[in-house]
Amino acid sequence: MNSSQLIGITTFTYLFSTILYAALFIFKSNRLGFIATIFTVVAFLIQTAGIGLRWLESYQLGIGRAPLTNMYESVVFFAWTIILIYLIIEWKFKTRIIGTFAVPFAFLAMAYASFATGITKEIVPLIPALQSNWLIAHVVTCFIGYAAFAVAAGLGFMYLIKNTSDTRQSTNNSSLLGTLPALKVLDDITHKTMVFGFLWLTVGIITGAIWANSAWGTYWSWDPKETWSLITWFLYAITLHARYTRGWGGTRIAWLSIFGFISVVFTYYGVNFLLSGLHSYGSS
């Protein structure tokens, strides 16, 4: 068993988790919900083992580096963090339905990592510029932020769907959307998840700047990737201020959580492929 196999298995287990959560959403069976959770936890543990094993393998290859430094590894870590954040939310807020809208992100990320062409899964050694602990800190913190924003977008989407139902302020089993948490609850969790993501994105941008400064003597050079991370940061800052000081909530915040995440995806993915820049590390 090697790490690629373990990580490959995770892709399918997350697909299955997604199906279980979707079934839970449709059939509203508590037992199904329990199974979905157990299954997701097991998938998460397999993935954790896969990432750990990949780390070990890099040492066996004499390269010895954290598995966080190219597109494949970062996408896998992204999926891992989404599931972690989702499981924490499920445990804290005692609601499983959210899984229907959060776990698919992890599956999609894993599917992308596994099947997209042009993504190398090989454990390649690090070029000199990437040999830095600040880089590891940068990747970890950014991806915790990104994963939180993914979950927040899932929640925002749930909010918009729930908003079309006539069971807005309650939960019951009388209709499909009835099982979703009440709007007030969704609004609150979306906001908290965004706040959490904002903190980590901030730390991610800062550690990135420190890394750049130790490698090139410039903590900020307005390259497209940096600039897009700042744009994303501004977007979430706008969202927080609109909520705190102008009392925005509900639908508007839900939409902003989705726009914010689109900006995240562009920062992470779009920039590498659509714009030119220095930040080449994610591109292979």
Partner: peptide, 24 residues
């Protein structure tokens, strides 16, 4: 005013895009 802050942040975000599309 916070309205000005929202406006400025929004304007900064949108104009920042220009420099990422046109190589600098």
């Amino acid at each position: 005013s916070v309205k000005l802050a929202l406006f400025t942040l929004f304007f900064l975000s949108t104009t920042s895009i220009i420099g990422t599309v046109i190589p600098q």
